[in-house]
Simulated assay, not measured.
Amino acid sequence: METTTDNGKTVAIIAYITLVGWIIALIMNNANKTALGSYHVRQALGIICVGVLLIILVSFIGISILTWIVQLAVLVFWVLGLVSAVQGEMKPVPVFGEQFQEWFKGI
């Protein structure tokens, strides 16, 4: 039987596995809310949103090196969030991590 802590860690990790994983994690977390699961669902959503917005913005600018830099930054944020989830920590991703918690506090 899975404990609440294990469920939270599972939700936290799944939240970072693509958009489909995020949706699954959201559903799992809504069924059995944990602080760790909710925290990482918000962090992952923030990374997804900021990543999509930055890629769209950079695409309009049309500078390919900037696109690579943005993609690398999003990848680094994703890895940092995933590592934090695997370790069972509630550590915000750099730059916007604290804002993600505020912006998506309803989740």
Rank of each mutant, 00 (worst) to 15 (best):
C49A: 15
G97T: 05
V52E: 11
V50F: 15
W68C: 04
V83N: 11
W68H: 12
G51V: 07
P94K: 08
V83D: 10
T34K: 01
V41P: 05
A35V: 04
Y39H: 14
W78Q: 03
V20R: 01
V95P: 08
L72Y: 14
P94L: 04
K33I: 02
Y16H: 15
F104I: 00
I69C: 07
T3F: 01
L26K: 10
Q71E: 14
Q71M: 14
N29E: 15
L19T: 11
W68T: 14
A31F: 03
A15Q: 11
I47Y: 08
K91C: 04
L45N: 15
T4F: 05
L72D: 03
A44G: 14
S64G: 09
Q99C: 02
P94M: 02
I107R: 01
G88L: 03
L36R: 08
T3Q: 01
R42M: 11
A44Q: 12
I63M: 09
F100K: 08
M90W: 01
L45M: 15
T10R: 13
A12L: 03
I69R: 04
L54M: 09
F77Q: 09
V93F: 05
G37V: 07
T3L: 01
V58R: 01
K105C: 03
I24Q: 05
S84C: 05
A12W: 05
Y39K: 04
T3P: 03
Y16N: 08
V50R: 03
I47D: 10
L19P: 04
I17V: 15
W103Y: 05
Q101F: 01
C49S: 14
A73K: 09
I23N: 00
I55N: 15
N32S: 13
I27G: 00
T67R: 10
V79N: 05
A31E: 14
L53G: 15
D6P: 00
N30E: 13
I61N: 08
L53C: 13
F96S: 10
G97H: 04
F60E: 07
L36F: 07
L82K: 04
M1A: 14
L36S: 10
L72N: 06
T34D: 07
G62M: 07
